[in-house]
Design a protein around this nucleic acid. Structure first.
Lengths: 341, 341
DNA sequence: TTGTACGCGTTATCAC
DNA sequence: GTGATAACGCGTACAA
């Protein structure tokens, strides 16, 4: 059983293919209402659905949206095991679908480029999470594909940016620890890179420290990667070499989990001996034992909003809105931070 | 700057579009080697990439693979926040890309069907995780789209199945607890449905119980949904109403997390007071505190293998292999099970 | 090697 | 106002 084409419908209806097309698109100015009804009935009966490829060719729009997320170094896999990304994708996909778009989820092979993929698949737009080398962005500008950037501080009006105030978040987390009486506060974090969110969170950390007139000690900054493993390594270091540290701000929840884990393994109690605050509030954070105190952002909604704005750009709506959108941030107090005695 | 088409290349090369097409596809029998070289050079220079939509139309293959995963009840979102699915997708996507396929990630709106989507997008194949109403599968058979089923016991040779021996896994987990001296063993689980994995794990549980000549007590089976929340609810019940239960087999790691959490909240110690074993070994399980003892399957690899077999079906390789593939299972001992004193 | 028809749907043009 | 005809978008594959 092969799928019906527009011609099949036309034949059955005794009209031209063009008429069917008009009926499909509701062009009442081209076909009378009653024939539209009749054609629609036949479309139902045959269960005819227009082919996206054909449409993509003629209308030059694929109804396909790409999504770019970081990959493992080998370039082999998307890092979806990081719940932060998968929760976001969940939000993106739902919203796209609501508007009749579909999501193409693909990484990039060694030596190939996402830009080529976008061109070949005729992507109507793309959402990028994280930051990439500058030239990466340029290509999209040249061929004029609408792009929404999530969690990036790339300053270019071509792109729409969705994010949070990471500096403030970093400040909030650190200030919270300070208010609880801590003064020697470690920072466990992924790579601090220009235009990235981590840099801003780091800046917020420093601001809070300075504002409290504490000494900013670079030795207390444990920077490497946004991973559980790095959290573990840093936690171990802290337990062994920096017993004066009584609180830790981890710039991502996964990192916080790792830190807590190795701290506990080293015989430290969280939060009794050492407090830990995370960032993001991934789903897992409330399930963790002890439940993680963290800076919360609504990840799924962030994705949905990014999708919504991308569609707006594509459909060229009014969209003279700001091209940077900041989502709110809250602190959620759970069980990993305690007042210093 | 608009993208070059095959005609642009042809014009520059001073040949016909057909020649370019042949050059692209390496048809040395149709075009001389030297012109192929020359054309390829020009393709490089212009950075020409063939359009997937056009190809899809004429070759009737989209190089697009669909993936079906369960959705929230509102039909609004994919449940990607369940790491089990996202890890699997990671494995699937990587393998597909290796073979030149891309992944279309989409849920289904209320009142629409995945089958229609598959037809409209001309999907070359699809991977389905979990189980669905029977009619769901029939459509794909009719239009002859290759399908790989992950974690399903649907018995139909049209489909290729990738899974594990869930009955054995359930047996293994339960037997492990029994060997540790436990006899009152609770089962906390998602819905037990025909042809689903949970049913088999449940059967394995019963087999181990009976084999040990223990009494199978239906009251010890806490069945609802494969969620953290249900784990919590069940853990609470156990702590309050079934103090004689000294060990729990949770048929999914997320459920185990929930159970442990509420057990701990009720003042029980894991594993001192009560042991818990999970199933799947999602990434999070080794990060959990205490690290979860669980039945391990290689989730990412499972996805990769499913992708590989799907491609095999599509490309019609030799593939007279078995059409059911069972991946190995191991038990990983961490810190949530203890010998009963 | 090349011209050309084709796959499917859209839209501008033309006829009644 | 209703409708049909035909050209087009891009790449492929057959006949010439």
């Amino acid at each position: 059983m092969k799928k019906p084409t527009i011609k099949d419908v036309a034949k059955v209806a005794g009209v031209s293919a063009a008429a069917v097309s008009y009926a499909l698109n509701g062009r009442t100015d081209k076909v009378s209402n009653e024939t539209i009804e009749r054609i629609k009935g036949i479309i139902e009966t045959l269960n005819y659905k227009p082919d996206f490829s054909a449409r993509s060719l003629v209308k030059n729009q694929s109804k396909l949206i790409g999504i770019v997320i970081p990959q493992t170094e080998s370039h082999k896999q998307l890092i979806l095991e990081n719940p932060f990304y998968s929760e976001m994708i969940s939000g993106i996909e739902g919203k796209l679908r609501e508007y009749g778009y579909h999501l193409l989820l693909s990484g990039v092979n060694q030596g190939e480029s996402y830009l080529d993929l976008s061109i070949q698949r005729n992507l109507d737009g793309a959402i990028m999470m994280g930051i990439y080398p500058e030239q990466f962005y340029d290509g999209f500008k040249k061929i004029n594909i609408p792009i929404v950037l999530i969690d990036s501080y790339i300053n270019d009006n071509y792109f729409k940016r969705i994010g949070i105030d990471d500096e403030y978040g970093g400040y909030l987390a650190t200030k919270y620890l300070i208010d609880k009486g801590h003064s020697n506060i470690g920072l466990v974090t992924g790579a601090i890179r220009k235009d990235g969110v981590v840099e801003k969170r780091f800046l917020g950390y420093k601001r809070a420290i300075r504002e409290a007139n504490f000494f900013y000690n670079p030795d207390y900054v444990f920077e490497e990667s946004m991973s559980y493993e790095h959290g573990m390594a840093a936690g171990q270091l802290i337990a062994k070499k920096f017993p004066e540290i009584t609180a830790v701000f981890a710039t991502g929840d996964m990192v916080a989990f790792g830190a807590i884990r190795s701290l506990v393994d080293q015989g430290k109690k969280v939060p009794e001996d050492i407090s830990v605050i995370g960032f993001d509030d991934i789903t897992m954070s409330k399930m963790f034992i002890p439940p993680l105190t963290t800076i919360r952002q609504n990840i799924t909604e962030k994705g949905a909003i990014a999708a919504e704005h991308l569609i707006n750009m594509i459909q060229g709506g009014v969209e003279q809105e700001a091209n940077e959108i900041m989502l709110p941030l809250t602190i959620v107090e759970r069980a990993t931070v305690k007042v210093k005695e």
